[in-house]
Amino acid sequence: MRRITLLACGLCCAFGAYAEQGRLLATGGASMLEGAAGGGIVPWAVLTGYGEQDEWGGSAFATRVETGDYRLDAGGVALAYGNRLELSYARQHLDLGSLARDLNLPDNSVSQDIFGLKVRLFGDLIYDRLPQVALGVQHKRQRDFRVPKLVGAQRDTDTEGYLVASRLWLGAAFGYNLLGNVTARYSRANELGLLGFGGDRRDQHQWLGEASLAVLLNPRWAVGVEYREKPDNLSFAGESDWQDVFIGYFPSKHVSLVLAYARLGEIATYDHQDGVYLSLQGSF
C-alpha cells in the first residue's frame, strides 16, 4: 500500500506540472475513506483535484484511523476530467487487533479494493442557481473473505450507488462560507464492505443517509461535522452509524490535511470505537 501511495504521489507531481488547476482552493475536497473526493467518511459532489472544463485533476491519499481496538489504513488515487467525471481506486486495510485474538480468527486483518466512478450531473458548487449534484458508483471487492464469511456476510463483492448534492454558500455562516453536503447511498456493505456485503439478518441494498456541514474560516481552513448512516445486516454484532468532527487544512492546491475525531460506535462486537482520523492528500 505504501508503494502505491508513493507511486501515486510521484504521478501527481508529474501531472501537476501540466495541470491548469482552474478551480478555487479546497473545492476539490479531501479524499474520503473510499477514495472519492469528499470529506472523511462522506463524499462531496465535487470532482477530485482542481480541473475545470477541458482540464485534468487528480489526487492521491493516505489515511489512518485508530480506534483503540482497531486500526484502519486506506490509500488510493483518483483522476478527474473536465470537472465532470471522476475515477478512483482505493484499498482499505483493517487491522482486527484484539478481535482476532479474542475470537481466535483465521486472519488478523481484512482488506478490500474499491473502484469508484462519479459523474457531475448538473449545478455548480458555488456559482449556478442549482447546487452541484453528482451520481456515484462504487464497486467493492473483499480481499480476505474468511472472517467476513465467518460472521455471516453473504458475498465478497458488491456494487453500490449514491446521489450527492453539495453547495458552498458564500458568507452564510455569520460571514464565513458554509459548505453543505447531502448523500443518499444505496448499499448493503457491512462496515464499508470490510466485513463483506449483505448478512444473515438482511441481504438487500437499502437507502442510507449521509451528510456533512463545514465552515470555512478562510480559504485554507475548514472545520465541520459529518454523519453517515450504516446498515445493520449481521446478527453477530451491531453496526453503528458513524460521525466525526474535523479540521481540514488546504495550504495549496497540491496538499491537504484532515484531522478528525471520529465516533464509530460498535464495530464487530467492540463498542465505543472512538478515535483519531488523519488523512494526507496530494492533488493537482
Partner: peptide, 18 residues
C-alpha cells in the same frame, strides 16, 4: 480586508458569472 467582508463581496459577484 477581513475574510467575512471578502466573502460578502464575492457573494455579490458570484451570480454574475453566467
Amino acid at each position: 480586508v477581513s475574510v467575512r467582508a471578502q466573502n460578502q463581496l464575492l457573494a455579490h459577484l458570484a451570480p454574475m458569472r453566467g
